[in-house]
C-alpha cells in the first residue's frame, strides 16, 4: 500500500468512525444506564429499530427531522417502559423478556414501517467541521452530525450522574445490592423502570440517527444487529459511559475498514475485513480479561453475574 492509499484508508476510517459509531454509542449508553440499575435489556435492538422507523415516519409526515428524533426517543422509551414494567413482576426473567421486546419492537417497526420504505424523509443537517480543508475527502469525513456530539455529551453527563449525584448513587445502589437499597427505603422497581425507559429512549435516538442521518433511509435491514452488538459493547466498556465512547468509535472505524480497503485496491479477503469489528472485540477482551478482573465494574444485581 502506498502512502496516499494509507492516508485515504486513515481518513475513511476516521470518517467511518464518526459516521457509523453514533448508533452504537447511544444504544450502549442506554444499556449502560439500564444495567447500572441492575437489569439487562436485550430489547434495545427492538428500541433501535422502532426508533428508526418512528423517527423516519415522523420526519416524513411533519417535515421536521428534529421532531423525528424526539418521536424516535419517545417510541424507544415506551418500549423500554413496557420491558421495565413486565420485568418488575415476580419471577420474570429479564433476558428472556428482553428477547421478546426485541422481536416485538422490530415486528411493530416492520408492520407500521411498510408505507415508509419508499418515501424520502428530510434528513438531519450535519455540521461541516472540515471547512478548513481543501481535500473533499477530509471535508466529507468531518461532516459530523450534531447527534454524535449529543451522544458524547450524554456519555459525559451519565458519567457525572453516576459519580457525583444523588440520583446516580441511588441507581448504583439499586443495581449493586437490592438488600442495601431496601434497607435505605429506595423504590427499587420505580428506579429500574425509569432507568430502563430512559435507556431505551437513548436507543431510540440511536435508531433516529440510522434512519435520518446515516445511512439515512428506512428499511427492514437497517440495523442488521447493531443494537445487539452495542449491548455487548457495554460489557466491553466495563459499564463506564466514557469508555463507551471509545468502544463505539473503535467499532465504527473497524466497520469502515472493509469498504475503504476495497476502494484503495486491497480487494483480497474482504469477508475477513468485514469481520474486523468482531475480531477487534475478541482481541481486546482476550487482552484485557484476567482472572478475577474480568467482571470488574459489573453491577452486583445483574442477572449475568448470578
Amino acid at each position: 500500500m502506498t502512502g496516499g492509499a494509507l492516508t485515504t484508508v486513515a481518513i475513511a476510517m476516521l470518517g467511518g468512525s464518526l459516521r457509523v459509531s453514533t448508533p452504537f454509542l447511544f444504544v450502549s449508553l442506554g444499556e449502560c444506564l439500564t444495567e447500572k440499575s441492575g437489569r439487562i435489556n436485550l430489547g434495545n435492538e427492538g428500541a433501535l429499530v422502532l426508533g428508526a422507523m418512528v423517527a423516519y415516519a415522523t420526519s416524513y409526515q411533519t417535515a421536521s427531522p428534529w421532531a423525528g428524533v424526539l418521536a424516535g426517543a419517545l417510541a424507544g422509551a415506551l418500549l423500554g417502559a413496557l420491558h421495565g414494567t413486565v420485568c418488575s413482576l415476580a419471577r420474570v426473567n429479564d433476558v428472556a423478556m428482553g428477547i421478546a421486546i426485541m422481536l416485538a419492537g422490530s415486528g411493530l417497526a416492520f408492520f407500521f414501517g411498510k408505507p415508509y420504505v419508499q418515501p424520502s424523509a428530510p434528513h438531519l443537517p450535519t455540521l461541516p467541521l472540515g471547512f478548513w480543508s481543501d481535500l473533499p475527502q477530509v471535508r466529507s469525513a468531518l461532516d459530523v452530525s450534531p447527534l454524535f456530539f449529543a451522544g458524547v455529551l450524554a456519555a459525559i453527563a451519565l458519567h457525572w450522574l453516576f459519580r457525583t449525584t444523588r440520583i446516580g448513587l441511588r441507581i448504583r445502589i439499586v443495581g449493586d445490592s437490592e438488600d442495601a437499597a431496601r434497607a435505605l427505603g429506595l423504590p427499587i422497581d420505580r428506579i429500574r423502570l425509569v432507568a430502563t425507559a430512559v435507556g431505551s429512549g437513548l436507543a431510540g435516538v440511536g435508531g433516529a440517527f440510522l434512519s435520518l442521518v446515516y445511512p439515512g433511509s428506512w428499511n427492514e435491514g437497517l440495523s442488521s444487529g447493531q443494537g445487539l452488538m452495542a449491548v455487548a459493547l457495554v460489557v466491553f466498556a466495563r459499564w463506564n459511559p466514557l469508555v463507551c465512547i471509545a468502544a463505539a468509535l473503535l467499532f465504527g472505524a473497524a466497520g469502515a475498514l472493509g469498504p475503504s480497503l476495497q476502494t484503495v485496491g486491497v480487494t483480497q479477503g474482504y469477508y475477513l475485513f468485514y469481520a474486523a469489528p468482531y475480531v477487534v472485540t475478541l482481541a481486546i477482551l482476550v487482552l484485557t480479561v484476567a482472572p478475577g478482573r474480568s467482571l470488574r465494574g459489573m453491577p452486583g444485581e445483574l442477572s449475568l453475574g448470578k
Binding site: A12, Y214, G221, S224, G255, Q262, T263, Y274
Partner: peptide, 24 residues
C-alpha cells in the same frame, strides 16, 4: 472499481462503500 458488500441488503456498508468510492 467494484466493492462487494457481502450480502443483498447491507445499508450501512452500502453507504460506507459509496462514500469510500467518492473519496477516491
Amino acid at each position: 472499481q467494484v466493492i462487494f458488500t457481502g450480502d443483498w441488503s447491507m445499508p450501512v456498508k452500502e453507504a460506507e462503500a459509496t462514500n469510500g468510492l467518492a473519496d477516491q
